[in-house]
């Protein structure tokens, strides 16, 4: 589904922050993206959600060669990807409902369908009573769940999460990971960037480990990778 082949990325005329990255992500797989700060995790995530094009190499996303796609085509491809950011990036002026509804409104779904889907999903993540609440009035955990709901409302083929447990205590963090696991069992391909090695070992999914801009594949221990 996603194929990286000798991918390199540099910003402007600076040095390459990613070098010769090659890996495949199959449909329904679950990977952790690990590595120290500055190793290139955010840059790799950026490539995965097509926020940037690679400087070199062949990147295939959903069977489309990225360098052959126009800007508008890339925008449409992004609709297959859900992203959960470390800092949530919720829109503070919108209610929880409207934040989650955003991806559906972008693709022009009817309001009635949006209302039904968003209400159901927010109830599923335990925020059925907070539809009209705005992010500044919610706790970190609640914001995180809204961010996840927003990322998955459009049933993305690929779900990316950047340090999703970074702002949460361990117990809530693990519950969140089980939620991702559940989505993965439903067929969503998942990549979670994290520093939390305890969680990585506990769940046992394979790792894409970045070190100084290069990638090392570490097989999983749960037999699903």
């Amino acid at each position: 589904m996603i194929h990286f082949e000798n991918i390199g990325l540099r910003y402007g005329t600076g040095p390459e922050v990613l070098q010769d990255i090659s890996f495949n992500l199959n449909k329904g797989s679950f990977h952790f993206l690990t590595g120290k700060s500055g190793a290139g995790k955010t840059s790799l995530m950026n490539l995965l959600y097509m926020g940037r094009r690679p400087t070199r190499g062949r990147l295939t996303m959903f069977n489309k060669l990225i360098h052959e796609q126009s800007r508008n085509d890339l925008i449409k491809l992004r609709r297959y990807v859900g992203v959960v950011f470390q800092d949530f990036r919720l829109l503070d002026h919108l209610s929880a409902f409207d934040n989650v509804a955003l991806p559906l409104r972008i693709i022009g779904r009817p309001e009635q369908e949006i209302k039904q889907q968003v209400t159901e999903l927010l109830a599923w993540v335990g925020l059925g009573d907070y539809l009209k609440s705005t992010p500044p009035t919610l706790s970190g955990g609640q914001k995180q769940r809204i961010a996840i709901a927003r990322a998955v409302i459009n049933r993305p083929r690929l779900l990316l999460a950047d340090e999703p447990t970074g702002n949460l205590d361990d117990q809530i963090g693990m519950r969140l990971m089980y939620l991702f696991d559940e989505l993965n069992r439903m067929g969503t391909t998942i990549v979670v960037a994290t520093h939390n090695l305890n969680m990585v070992h506990e769940l046992g999914h394979p790792q894409l480990h970045l070190s100084d801009g290069t990638l090392h594949y570490i097989p999983g221990t749960n037999g699903r990778g």
Partner: peptide, 8 residues
């Protein structure tokens, strides 16, 4: 953010 979510 809207662009990332696929807004044209």
């Amino acid at each position: 953010l809207l662009h990332i979510m696929g807004a044209d």
